[in-house]
Simulated assay, not measured.
Amino acid sequence: MSAPIRVLVCDDQVLVRTGLVTIMDAQPDIEVAGECGDGKAAVELAGRLRPDVVVMDVRMPVLDGIAATRLLAGAGVARPVKVLVVTTFNLDEYVYEALRAGASGFLLKDAPVDQLLHGIRTVSTGTALLAPEVTRRLVGEYAARIRPVDGEPQDLPLTPRELEVLRLIADGLSNGEIAARLVISQETVKTFVSRILTKLDLRDRVQAVVYAYRHGLAT
């Protein structure tokens, strides 16, 4: 059997944190490496415990979840940690900023238990947890906040087809939807996505969306 997914839980509400820990402890493939109640403690514990995933609240004392995420998973971090942000419906803007800070995805606090567990497992594999409809919603509302650079980059190391796939990712299309649009297989789409992330030195689809908007490749 493979080693369990080690998770650090960070939430300033004790009851919420206890509930999350209890749920995770009951799973044979998930191990709670530690827990804390603020972002500063999360950064310190992550450095010491080396969890596979940090489940991070947004609004917390001392250091908020966005700032903590940037320190754990942002650009330039030597050993980035995968961060799964938890939030509520009325905090979309905070979620968006957390994704820009380096989070691999997010869930709502009232999500069913199976979604939480699926989210942890998904993020632990290096896959972004960002549903296509959520991509459309967030990008549609906050794309204007991403300051674009001047013009399309001239040295973009992508083939025309890869560039087309990147634009469709930025539009919020899933692999299946991209495959249907381009009349290719989903496996081929996965190959294109992998190449795009590698060539542009991006971690996941979330970063690809932000990259596309920053460089004027999507509207």
Rank of each mutant, 00 (worst) to 15 (best):
L8S: 09
N90A: 02
V86L: 11
V149T: 12
V86F: 00
L15P: 04
V134A: 10
L49Q: 06
E35T: 10
V16A: 11
R147D: 05
S104V: 00
G151I: 10
V193Y: 10
V189L: 10
D114M: 11
G119Y: 00
L129M: 10
V139D: 04
P28C: 05
I23V: 15
L72K: 01
D114F: 12
K109M: 08
K109Q: 08
A41P: 06
P80G: 09
D12Y: 03
C10I: 03
V32P: 01
E97T: 01
D92W: 02
A180T: 13
F192V: 14
L166G: 07
R48V: 10
T88P: 01
P160R: 13
A180R: 15
A144P: 09
A180K: 15
V95T: 03
D150P: 07
R214T: 13
V189Y: 06
I184M: 06
L168A: 13
Q13E: 13
D110N: 11
A144C: 07
M56H: 03
R6W: 00
T127K: 13
G37P: 10
Y211S: 12
R70G: 01
R70M: 03
R70P: 00
L182F: 09
A68M: 11
L200A: 09
V7E: 03
V7K: 03
M1R: 15
A73R: 03
G74M: 02
R147S: 05
V55I: 07
T127P: 04
T127Y: 06
R79F: 13
L217E: 13
I5H: 00
V81E: 02
R145A: 12
L72A: 01
G37E: 06
L63I: 14
D201T: 14
L173M: 14
S185W: 07
T122G: 07
S194E: 15
L71F: 09
R17Q: 09
D25L: 12
A67C: 07
V53G: 03
A111D: 03
G172N: 11
M24N: 02
T135A: 15
A46E: 04
P61G: 14
I5L: 06
E177F: 10
V21C: 09
K109T: 08
V54G: 01
A68F: 10
G74Q: 01
A75M: 06
